[in-house]
Amino acid sequence: MVKVADLGFSYPGGDFRLRVPALTLDDGERLAIVGPSGSGKTTLLNLIAGIFRPNTGRIDIAGTDVAALPDAARRRFRASTIGFVFQDFALLDYLTARQNILYPYRIAPGLRLDAAARARAEALAEASGIADKLDRHPEALSQGEQQRVAICRALVTEPKLVLSDEATGNLDPESKTRILDLLFARAEEAGASVLAVTHDHELLPKFDRVLDFAEFRQGRPA
């Protein structure tokens, strides 16, 4: 699913250097990345998502070299192939839960908001236990419910890869487990692989594989 080879990246003007000689993620695999703060975990997610362009190396996702794609194509590829779950949920306060789930269709190129998309949103919400809260704004939801909405948003476009950046970082221990189980369950239903950055070592047993990111770190972010 994901193959990273000889990846090199540095921020312009900074002394941070990231090198990833090789990294693979199989179809449906759940890989956790751990490592100290500032080691470049989030930078790697941004590189894989095509938000940053690497200085060297390849990032193949489902057979496409993301790094080689022009900007517009990368955006389209990201919108259709990758789902994001953020630590702070990144929900929009002025949209309801339903509108937040369907948000990618409102802003991303190449995605069409049709009946099938709406039905998928409803089904994901049902499976995530928030079907009765779809018309509420984020402020009227608990943190756990907000993260469920965020997971539904990440999966509504049927991505092949879900990138999770500290998705459980803001939750209490009980909620962390439930949310991670939920994310894995929905991703499995969608046939998506999961690449998750986490600091929660108690959650690591739930992943198929754990990668300690410290070994790739060379320098600190600018």
Binding site: N46, R75, R78, A90, P109
Partner: peptide
Amino acid sequence: GEIATAVKIGAR
């Protein structure tokens, strides 16, 4: 933050 989210999701 909203703008960053939109860009990450794929917005131009």
